[in-house]
Design a binder for these strands. Sequence first.
DNA 1: CAAAATAGTTGAACTTGTTCAACTTCCTAA
DNA 2: TTAGGAAGTTGAACAAGTTCAACTATTTTG
Lengths: 190, 190
Amino acid sequence: MSYQLLKNQVNQTIEISHSDLENFCNAFTSKTIKKKEFLLSQGRIYKYEGFVVSGCFRVFTIDKKGNENNLYFAAQNWWLMDIDSFLNQTPSNLNIQALEDSEVLLIRREDKLKLYESLPIIEKLFRIMSQKALVAWQRRLIRNNTLTAKERYVHFVTTYPNIVCKLTDKQIASYLGITHEFLSKIKKQG
Amino acid sequence: MSYQLLKNQVNQTIEISHSDLENFCNAFTSKTIKKKEFLLSQGRIYKYEGFVVSGCFRVFTIDKKGNENNLYFAAQNWWLMDIDSFLNQTPSNLNIQALEDSEVLLIRREDKLKLYESLPIIEKLFRIMSQKALVAWQRRLIRNNTLTAKERYVHFVTTYPNIVCKLTDKQIASYLGITHEFLSKIKKQG
DNA sequence: CAAAATAGTTGAACTTGTTCAACTTCCTAA
DNA sequence: TTAGGAAGTTGAACAAGTTCAACTATTTTG
């Protein structure tokens, strides 16, 4: 049952009544996405927010020179969202693509806004999740400023082994902010 | 009146009744902090959250080699918090130091937790503020991965001129993730 | 005001990471 | 099942950024 993962995560984050949790989960619909398909393309306004049940996604930007930059990866239990586009309803700068056949639970923007109104506990849920994510991004930035490429690579593969095994080296290099040629050389050094 | 800035920021973020806003602001107490004094030192558990009324602070980590790494600066209308320490009540990895004589509005952790209970709108306030901050951190990380040091420097001084003018080049270099010697060379090139 | 500490500059040698190009290997779609 | 296209490897030349050391401002403090 694909909703169980979502329920688990909510229960681990906040205390919520059974009926409120049901109401929350009922706002989501399941969707399967084939490998290489896009959940969101740059320039579009993002109307959904997603919880990954199975599979894996990459979230990336494309700069002026046409280079892709992987911002993060999302496997089981991760959230997929472009907060910027979702908050402000501005065209997205992000692309979200499935790296393998995947299942996500999607909630429409309007439905989420309604939930914020009808269930204040949902504000708390996303307040806490956002704050936790913020801490993670701050730490990642510190690592990028203080560690070498090799140290960052070692940190990534040891911290997220279940995601790393689904990725190509090219994708990892882009996430780490280095070229894939250089990652190849790092790996050769041992 | 130092509370007016706080009220303005809240009003710009959410719709809130006059009495709720009063209750929120009443939980804060004003404190003046002299230049170079610390609001928080690494290893302590952070019991307060602060809103900067005047002056300027730097938030930084110290790594194993003893190098300081400026994470961000906070001038008027910015918030000072170690979310990680505040959320989990774990010893802080951050140091918060005044760069000039400053005034902050402080709220105690317990009082903030009480406010979350009694005023659900405060959950919304911090949910939105956290999500906006998250977007800013994501963008900063993308810039760090895709721009050269010089481009990052130009972006920083043009985006935050009112903060830059309060900083030394050494502090800016640390924020950008480069050495102060290299920043000096960047500036010389024009 | 004088002394001491801190901030900023410059150069030379060095390390880290990039670019480009050629090659190999491994998928994958017709 | 095989041709075509990604993904990965390697090397050489290069660019970006660091380190160390010596020096010059500029603040800070007694």
